[in-house]
Design a protein around this nucleic acid. Sequence first.
DNA 1: CATGAATGAGAGTTCATTCAT
DNA 2: GATGAATGAACTCTCATTCAT
Lengths: 213, 213, 213, 213
Amino acid sequence: MRTKDTKKKKALIDRRKTQILDVASLIFSKEGFAKANTDEIAKAANVGKGTVYHYFKNKRALFLAVVDRGLEQLKGAILIEAEKTDDPLEKIENAMKTYLSFFEKNKNLIGILIHEQSSFQKRIAKHYFEHYYGNVDKIKQTFRAGMDQDLIKGMDIDSVISVYTSMLNGLIFMWQIEGRKYRLIDKVSIVTKIFLTGIIKDKKRRKEYEKEK
Amino acid sequence: MRTKDTKKKKALIDRRKTQILDVASLIFSKEGFAKANTDEIAKAANVGKGTVYHYFKNKRALFLAVVDRGLEQLKGAILIEAEKTDDPLEKIENAMKTYLSFFEKNKNLIGILIHEQSSFQKRIAKHYFEHYYGNVDKIKQTFRAGMDQDLIKGMDIDSVISVYTSMLNGLIFMWQIEGRKYRLIDKVSIVTKIFLTGIIKDKKRRKEYEKEK
Amino acid sequence: MRTKDTKKKKALIDRRKTQILDVASLIFSKEGFAKANTDEIAKAANVGKGTVYHYFKNKRALFLAVVDRGLEQLKGAILIEAEKTDDPLEKIENAMKTYLSFFEKNKNLIGILIHEQSSFQKRIAKHYFEHYYGNVDKIKQTFRAGMDQDLIKGMDIDSVISVYTSMLNGLIFMWQIEGRKYRLIDKVSIVTKIFLTGIIKDKKRRKEYEKEK
Amino acid sequence: MRTKDTKKKKALIDRRKTQILDVASLIFSKEGFAKANTDEIAKAANVGKGTVYHYFKNKRALFLAVVDRGLEQLKGAILIEAEKTDDPLEKIENAMKTYLSFFEKNKNLIGILIHEQSSFQKRIAKHYFEHYYGNVDKIKQTFRAGMDQDLIKGMDIDSVISVYTSMLNGLIFMWQIEGRKYRLIDKVSIVTKIFLTGIIKDKKRRKEYEKEK
DNA sequence: CATGAATGAGAGTTCATTCAT
DNA sequence: GATGAATGAACTCTCATTCAT
């Protein structure tokens, strides 16, 4: 009996926490940390202001809980994508798809991550990279495998990954500031094509640029 | 005499405005609009708080003046880059260089543009694109010329430009959130290489991805 | 059977009440009424917050219960001291000892009585004097007896008692604000000596001050 | 001109500070630190809430400013009393008078000092004793002189002073909690008489108590 | 013109009290 | 009866903006 009750209670508490986090996520995303206001969050979550403080020490803690949950979900999403293929090029394409569709599904997280690059820079950047680069390791292996198999040009791996990451985050960033008017996932094919094969058609010119250090 | 005095006065006023804008730019970039505080700005600009309000109607107006000045400078920078070559591929590379080095020189602007994608989204996005796409028109012509000369693959131009823009902004964004620890301009060569020629080495695989719609 | 159960229950309730009052006494003494916090009291008493409210209508009622219990104990203590001697001077010394050692044993009460001289002034002062002056009547009789027996100088009794009371309460007050670093009871001998015989040695000067109205 | 203006401004600022301190002193005395509320203080001082915070960092700082000013005044008062006589016994009586009439004039300070013996115990006790014991040194010398001149019985000086201090503070304390219904200064003669000559009339009994260790 | 003291709406946070379980 | 999650009034403190000097 007792166990059941306790379980029920815990579930209820978890639901309440989730409820607050969901709302907070939306509001922080829309307003940014500083402008977002606890009263509004409480009201939108249909709880009293005190309840928010019952579950989270203060506004900052609530915010970080939102961020942490988001990053945890990102990690989960990318891990699930797992190994559906052995081909390095296909892996690269799949990773792109996963990353973009995650953020398409978790719109709020974008606003939050973009917004708070200063106030919480260290905190967030650290967590972001902890979570993300756990996966980047795998990406690295993929690129390396591609090079070993002579599928991919020999280049400095970190530089390539840096371009790869920038491109993805840039796509998300632009999507966000342009008002999310299109489907992010639709960009995958053109991005893949350009990232993998470039835009040059002329063979001579391509060679020229490929040689260039 | 009078004219001279008036001129002097105007110059003084302009200097003061510039002085305030410079400081405000730095502080808005570091703190974001909401957290930045007028007292701090006034103090850092070595003027009284009232003076700030003398030159700018309110905090919002000051902020937008900072943004507008920044975007105006961006426009200027890119226009100056001008027409140093006729080759479309070189033009593309040069535009990259100009864009990245502008933001490397105007670090504050990055923080401001990134920060305020929500509160001032419409205002800023509008201005940004007005200024920027003035230039994008030229980029468009460049890409088109490249295609006409069979240097560049036939693709949807807007899509290509979207990837191009995302890549550049993504590079700047990552540079910012990673703490601006390297020279942004150093990325130009690898980015150019990948954007122009892709990462694939294997011919068969390249063909395959080039055909893919 | 029923009676036994009811008795047990009552005993339990009393134990719980005592438990809460003990903890509350300590906390009110340390923090004062306004700063003391019910959550802390409940936790320290090992009961739920609701339980505190079950036994005491509200914070104020709990506080007054603490005070009342303290004053009741003071009354008890002084009554017990009883009549161990007939000599007025010895009685005066004994009353001092009793009073000081009571507060030495009931440290919390001091903090509470000192703290709340404003918010609860009337309530507490009334109770304090009701309880205390019940005894003061006896003190009065003692002084009168002393005067009647020509042991004590003829003076206005209320004034003498007022000095007597002030001295004792002053000792307790100073002991408290100095951090209770010594044994309060150790002051009895010097206080008695001074109160009974004064500090003057020189006979002429003493006479002079004794005559002075 | 400038100097004059600056002076005027400073005077104005000082007046404003005094104005706030006066009101705060009254309210802290009546309500205690925790219950006193900044809004009320601001309103009573006829200034905006922000103004209070303009002059004092926070509630605590305001409170301590009130205390410090009070203690500073106490020091001043006692120093002024100065050396109006050379006779040790008269000095002792004069010091009493000064001390009691100071607190009679500075009623608010009593409430404040009594109230906050816990929250600010260390801070206040330290300041109080710094200021007060500056004077206690003089008291000590007076007692010592009295003993050297064989006017005062040979006793442990610190103990005597402790009784002396307790008696005075006790008088003030009782005056306060009894509602300040009489003139504090009227107690001086009876207190002096008892402190100097004791209450015993009977010679034999006096000897007995004087011998007692 | 330039200043910064003054202001009060509004923000974050606390906590006595209630009440469903 | 016992509990502690939920609540919102009330409190401290901040800061954009105004205005007398």
